[in-house]
């Protein structure tokens, strides 16, 4: 019962993940793509979290937390680099 519920949740999350992936192909503006990227990264991290809880695996959960904070920091850096590159 529990496993089936978790599988349904994960498949719903995959569907939610597909929306920004499709959107990134269609849009032509760099900032729209950055939005989709930030959305995708937080969604993937949440999926890792769900899997770690599903398997009761502490190690994967730690990785998810590190990806969550470091990945976001990386995107902030990337947004600034993009801004500099477009302006120059």
């Amino acid at each position: 019962m529990n496993i089936i519920f978790m599988n349904v949740i994960l498949i719903a999350m995959i569907l939610a993940l597909l929306i920004p992936i499709v959107e990134v192909c269609k849009d032509n503006n760099v900032w729209q793509k950055m939005l989709a990227l930030s959305s995708i990264s937080s969604k993937t991290t949440m999926m890792i979290f769900i899997v770690s809880v599903l398997r009761d695996d502490w190690m994967i959960g730690v990785v998810a937390v590190i990806i969550l904070s470091v990945g976001n920091a990386g995107f902030m850096l990337m947004a600034h680099i993009m801004k500099r590159m477009r302006n120059a």
């Binding site: 990134v24 793509k33 950055m34 990227l37 995708i40 993937t44 990386g74 990337m78 993009m82």
Partner: peptide
């Protein structure tokens, strides 16, 4: 460059 970031996120997952 942006899509490389998406690839990285999905690969990590």
């Amino acid at each position: 460059l942006v899509i490389r970031g998406i690839l990285g996120a999905i690969a990590a997952m």
